[in-house]
């Protein structure tokens, strides 16, 4: 019995030793047998940690991942992208235990740390390899497409005698003065600032000057923005389509529309970090997120879109321009400073 245990430990150690370098050095999909060994090793690591910056999908991801890998616990740390990347970089520098897989919007960060990301090797790599959704030699991937939207509280609008918003310009309604417009801070995610910039490009800088005069309320991220709209603290809020989903389900008087003047679509990117302390578990999670099963689980609720085609239930997204990538130009950075002055 004891000998049997030793054999199992040795076999596991061999798998770990083999799988580690393979994950670091190769971007070819693993064979079925090899992948089975990685899955086995992952289950022995018991848990895997995902750093996530999108609100509203956490519970679904956990539930669906548990169905796929019942022996592997998915822990999710959710923070705004801006704060998440600071923590990630601190962990990277200290080689501290933390994230295994990251899922956020700042493509600039992924490019910057590409050498510290592990090329994917799971079976799902074949779905992305050579497509416009794979970056940095298969080190990170687009995993979600989301449009920014305008959430509104139906009861508050009714009490104010204001109609349903039809575009960004409806945030400027004078009846929304004194904090009835909710905005995420521009530093919460670079893509947020890029969308603000796109709105300013379309409507002119006067848009945010006028919005500033209404004294909008700024929140650390989209999460509290949408919650405040649901509570009735704000009449309208700048959010993304996935954010109000749970609140709508819970019966909150909240709806949303996707403005097209301009439309702001952005991507969430996913990668395995090289400083992960659970490399096989990280490989398994990354592969699951990229796989069709994972994409169906994540996007099947209808509020977000997959980069893969024909995902049942996924949001039907046809971006009319390139996705916002979170890489800020000098003009956008300067606009950010102006935005602070105008809205605070």
């Amino acid at each position: 019995m004891r000998r049997c245990g030793i054999v199992v430990v040795l076999a596991t150690a061999c798998v770990l030793l083999l799988a580690g370098p393979m994950a670091q050095g190769s971007s070819a999909p693993a064979g079925a047998a090899e992948w089975a060994k990685i899955e086995q090793a992952a289950e022995q690591q018991e848990r895997v940690v995902l750093y996530l910056s999108i609100a509203g999908v956490e519970a679904r991801m956990k539930a669906e991942f548990r169905k796929a890998y019942p022996k592997l616990q998915l822990d999710v740390i959710r923070q705004p992208t801006g704060e998440l990347i600071s923590r990630l970089d601190a962990e990277r520098q200290a080689s501290a235990s933390g994230a295994d897989v990251v899922f956020h919007t700042d493509r600039g960060w992924f490019d910057q740390v590409a050498n510290h990301l592990v090329p994917a090797t799971g079976p799902a790599l074949s779905l992305y390899k050579g497509t416009k959704s794979a970056f940095a030699e298969n080190r990170y991937f687009t995993s979600m497409l989301v449009p920014f939207s305008l959430a509104y509280n139906t009861q508050v609008l009714a009490s104010l005698g204001v109609g349903v918003p039809t575009g960004w310009q409806d945030m400027l309604n004078p009846k929304f003065a004194n904090g009835l417009v909710g905005l995420p801070e521009r530093g919460s995610a670079p893509v947020t600032l890029q969308c603000y910039y796109a709105i300013a490009q379309t409507h002119g800088m006067g848009f945010f000057e006028r919005l500033g005069k209404l004294k909008p309320r700024l929140y650390p991220s989209i999460g509290p923005t949408v919650q405040s709209v649901a509570a009735g603290a704000n009449a309208v809020g700048f959010v993304q389509t996935a954010a109000p989903a749970d609140l709508i389900k819970a019966g909150a008087p909240i709806k949303q529309m996707v403005p097209t003047n301009p439309s702001c679509y952005y991507g969430y990117f996913v990668a395995q970090v090289a400083w992960s302390k659970r490399p096989q578990a990280a490989q398994v999670l990354l592969n699951w997120v990229m796989s069709r099963a994972g994409q169906e689980a994540i996007h099947g609720w209808g509020y977000t879109a997959s980069p893969l085609e024909n995902i049942p239930g996924g949001l039907d997204v046809k971006p009319d321009k390139p996705l916002l990538d979170g890489i800020l130009t000098p003009a956008q950075q300067e606009f950010g400073r102006q935005f602070d002055k105008m809205t605070r």
């Binding site: 923070q79 991220s221 999460g223 509290p224 919650q227």
Partner: peptide, 9 residues
């Protein structure tokens, strides 16, 4: 605070 910034009131 984490829950607060996430809007999970």
């Amino acid at each position: 605070y984490e829950y607060y910034t996430g809007g999970l009131y």
